[in-house]
Design a binder for these strands. Structure first.
Lengths: 210, 210
DNA sequence: CTCAAATATGAGACTCCCTCACATTACTGC
DNA sequence: GCAGTAATGTGAGGGAGTCTCATATTTGAG
């Protein structure tokens, strides 16, 4: 087998990486079932028995794939984060001047907001994140990673600014962006938009003149 | 009895308001016990049986005072919020100019941060808030109330600005302030301070020129 | 002192998470 | 094909908590 014990859901998996085709399919079935159930009833109402039933497997089998309930949620969050990180990386990669930075940043915020509105399961996990310490840490690491990318772009645009200050600013801006998104998606479209726009204005100032 | 069925913890209480002295004392004993347990082990580890034991009453009795576990936590949050609201009101009441607004706002942020650091139980409840939908709504209402007070002060200083825009800004600023505090208290003193200061700088711009 | 209303009690019903001893299926070398 | 072994699957049930309810005790008014 090519891969050793593999990480699943942020902590060591309940068992070695699935070797057989059947297993890999089941893993996807589990994650799909969980996504649907979370979208329907919220992650706090997620029952392991229901995930197993919907995925068409037994409880015992479910626990072969995930050591506990929060590992399922974490796995979903990680997949989502990986995708997001790619978008951020891509958007900020070519930034060289103020205009580029502005466009990239505003575009990312809009993208985030739209994605959140479109993916109910992720929205739910993200809103209820604070319930699970592992998930909070995961998301904090994610904020840090995204903040670092933003800081890099900002530093490129402001070569003479203090790197440490830029780093703190970028991390904070990103983290507050997430908070603003959470706030926006809990409002109706119109108010949500207004909040997103207010947040853009507010943080853009800081990005352009840190 | 002067008061009808009374609200406790945000939803209708398990029973009518306590009539006898004994009851009122027990209620305080329960809340004290809960506060201590949360400070010691976190609100997610709070056990009803332990609250009852520590308060020196039976489980059944505990459920006469609170319909469920989250009602205890909500009651603590509400008491805390009421106190905070008073501070905000007081700090912003006399604001008439830019200097006054600046001083009041910066002072409030520092106060919030210090209080959070000083009160472990509240810090825990506040950090884990997203776990409980009732608590999220409660805190959102609180943000709105505080945002409204801030908006009023801002409007006084900027009489010609669009009231709706001011309102959105103030609400967002306050909400992000809470997010920044949560972030800061999850870091060590030095980094926490740096984040608080960065946040002050960033939001102050918006407050002074909305 | 009596009686009703208020309050207290804790065994246990219930709901979930997760484990484990055992059953089944897939793969390997013959 | 066919053992034999590794991988995977199963679901009854152990355990931890939350909350209920039938019953007991305390309080206060008349």
């Amino acid at each position: 087998m090519a891969e050793e014990d593999r990480e699943v859901g942020g902590t060591r998996s309940a068992r070695r990486a699935p070797a057989q085709q059947r297993s890999r399919e089941r893993l996807e079935r589990i994650l799909t079932a969980a996504t649907e159930l979370i979208a329907a009833k919220g992650s706090d109402q997620l029952k392991m028995s229901e995930v197993a039933e919907r995925a068409g497997i037994s409880i015992g089998s479910l626990y072969q794939y995930f050591p506990d309930k929060s590992a399922i949620i974490r796995t979903l969050a990680e997949r989502y984060n990986a995708e997001n990180r790619r978008c951020i990386q891509e958007a900020l990669a070519g930034v060289q001047d103020l205009e580029g930075l502005t466009a990239a940043y505003l575009g990312l915020i809009d993208l985030y907001y739209e994605i959140m509105l479109a993916e109910p399961a992720m929205r739910d996990i993200w809103s209820g994140m604070q319930a699970d310490k592992h998930l909070v840490l995961l998301e904090l690491a994610e904020s840090r990673a995204a903040g670092a990318m933003l800081a890099e772009a900002m530093q490129r645009v402001h070569p003479h600014a203090d790197p440490e200050k830029i780093a703190t600013s970028a991390f904070l801006i990103w983290h507050l962006g997430e908070a603003a998104m959470r706030l926006a998606i809990s409002h109706d479209r119109e108010q949500g938009r207004a909040l997103v726009e207010a947040h853009k204005r507010m943080t853009l100032r800081e990005i352009l003149e840190p």
